[in-house]
Design a binder for these strands. Structure first.
Lengths: 165, 165, 165, 165
DNA sequence: TATGAATGAGCATTCATTCAT
DNA sequence: TATGAATGAATGCTCATTCAT
C-alpha cells in the first residue's frame, strides 16, 4: 500500500475510534508508521488530511450501495452500528468546513446518498422521503453510540413505515 | 441573574455558535463578563462546565414539550433549524462522556424525549416508532447545518408517515 | 522589576548577542526566568515582542542624546562598538516590519535621531548632513562587527569632515 | 547557464527580495527549476550555498568598480537604492559567519572595496576616509529600505564633503 | 548527475488549570 | 467570592538534510 493511503487509513482508524478533536498528527503518523514530516508532505495541513479522509472513506466504502430499500436500510444500520465513529467524524469535518465557509463536502455526501436512494422509492415524494430515511439512519447511527439497536427489528419497522405509503 | 447562570448562558451561546472544540474557557469567561478564576470557582473543570451546560440547557428549554405528535415534530424541527449548533454541542459532550466511560447524560436526554413522545403515539410499537421519530428529527437537525429545510413540508410528510400506521 | 520588563530585557540581551533569527521564545523565557506561557501572556506574538523590544530599547537607552556633534558622534560610535548587535536587531525588526507592510517603526527611529542631530549642525543642509552622519555611524556600527574601530580617531576624522563645511 | 549558476542566481533573487531568514532551500530549488537533491549535490549545506552566494555576487557584479570618487559614490548609491536587499543579505551572511567563528568573508568584501577606493582619494588619511565613505554608502543602503533617497543630491553632498578636505 | 520521498528535531503558539492576593 | 498573572505540557507545522533510485 502506498504511503499516502497508509496515512489515510491510519487517520480514519483514529478519527473513528475516539473524539475527533483528540486526534493528533503525531498520533496519526505513529499509527501509520511514518514520520510527522511525511504526513505534511502528502497533506498541506491537518484540515486537508481530514477532508481527504472523508473523500477517501466515501470512495473506498461506498456505504450507501444497495439493490432495494430494505437492503439499503439494513446495510446502513448495520454499518452504523459497527462504525458509529464514522458518522461523528463526518460531522466533525463538515462543521469545520462550514465554519471555514464551505458546505461543499457535506452537500456532496448528502446528494450522493440521495441519488442512490431516490430511484429505489416508488412514492410520491421520493426526494423528501429519501431525505427522511437518511436522516433516520444518521440519527440512529448517533444513537448507536449509547443504545444497543437491533438492526433486524429496526429495518422491519422502517420498511413497514415506508411501505404503507 | 446569578454568576453561575451567566457563565452557563455564555458558554451555551459560544458552544452552539462555533465548533465546540474551538471554545476556550478564557472566551467563556470574557463572554460572561467574569474572570477565568471564577469559572473554575463554579465548575471544577471545563468538562464539568460542559456537562452542566447540557443539563442547564435541557432544564431551561424543555425543547421536547408538545401536546401532540404534529406539534412535537413541528416545534422540534423549527428549533433544530434555528439552533443547529445545540445538537452538535450535545453530541460533542455525549461523545466525550462516552469516551470517558459514561453514557448517563446521553441516555438521560434520550429517555426524557422518549417518555414524552411515547404517550402521544397510538401505534403498536410506540417505543420503536418514538425512537425513529427522534432519530429523524436529530438527523434533520444535523442536515439543517448545510440544508435549508422547509419545516412545514417536512412536518406534513412525517405526520403523514406516522398516520398511515 | 516587573515581569514584562524582565522579559524585554532578556529578549534584548539575546537578540543583540547572536543572529536574531536564532533567538527562540523558549530561550527568552528561560533567560527571563519565566514560563513560555507568560511571554505570550504579555506579548501577543513573537513579532510583537520584537517590536516592543525595539521601542523599549529606544525609550530606555536614548542612545542619540548628546550636547554637540562631537559628543554625538563619539557616544554613538562607542555605543556601536560595544553593542554591535543592537543595530543588527533593529534592522532585523525593521525588515520584517517592512515585509509585513509597515515602515513606521524604522521611520520613527530615523526621525527621532534626525531631530536631535539637526539642531546641532550649523550647516547649509542640516537634514542631509544629519542623514549622512547617521548613515556613517550605522555603517561603522555594522563594520565594528568585524573591524576594530578606534573610536577617538574616527570621531576626530568625522568631526573634521563636518567642520570643513 | 550551468546548474550551479542557475541555483546561485535563483538563491540571490530570493535572498534579496525578502527577509533572508524566510528563504528555504525548497524555495530556491523551485525558483531554479531543479530538485532539492541537486541543490545539496552542488552545495554541502545551506550555509555553504549562502557563502557561495555572496562570493558569486561579488565576482559577478563587481559593484564597486568606478573611475573616480563621484562615479563610485553615484554608482553605489544607485545600486543600493535599486537593490537594498543585497546589503541585507550580505550582512545576514556576515553575521552568521561571525557567530560561527569567522570574519573572512566580511573582511574580504571590506578590503576589496577599500583597495579600489583608496587610490581615488587624494587626501591625507585615505584609508580612514575610504572606510567612512563605504560606511556612509552602506548606511544609506540600509536607509533606502524605508527612505526614498535622491541619488543625485546625496552624491553631490558627499562629493562636496570629501572635496573640502 | 538528478530526483523527491522520507526524516525528526525544533519552533511558535495555545489553553486548561492553579493560586496568591 | 473574585481576579488574572503564571505555568508548562501538548499541538500543528517547518525545514535542512539524507538517501534509495
Amino acid at each position: 500500500m502506498e504511503m499516502r493511503e497508509r496515512i489515510l487509513e491510519a487517520a480514519l482508524r483514529l478519527y473513528t475510534s475516539k473524539p475527533p478533536q483528540n486526534v493528533t498528527t503525531k498520533e496519526i503518523a505513529k499509527a501509520a508508521g511514518v514520520s510527522i514530516g511525511l504526513v505534511f508532505h502528502y497533506f498541506k495541513s491537518k484540515d486537508e488530511l481530514e477532508r481527504e479522509g472523508v473523500s477517501y472513506f466515501i470512495e473506498k466504502h461506498a456505504f450507501l450501495e444497495a439493490k432495494n430499500v430494505r437492503e439499503f436500510v439494513e446495510k446502513n444500520l448495520k454499518f452504523a452500528k459497527e462504525n458509529p465513529g464514522i458518522f461523528r467524524f463526518l460531522q466533525y469535518v463538515f462543521e469545520k468546513e462550514k465554519y471555514a465557509g464551505s458546505k461543499d463536502l457535506a452537500l456532496k455526501v448528502y446528494e450522493d446518498g440521495l441519488k442512490r436512494l431516490k430511484n429505489m422509492l416508488q412514492v410520491e415524494n421520493p426526494e423528501k422521503i429519501a431525505t427522511l430515511l437518511m436522516a433516520m439512519i444518521d440519527g440512529l447511527a448517533m444513537y448507536s453510540f449509547f443504545l444497543d439497536l437491533d438492526v433486524e427489528e429496526f429495518t422491519d419497522t422502517i420498511v413497514g413505515l415506508i411501505g404503507c405509503l
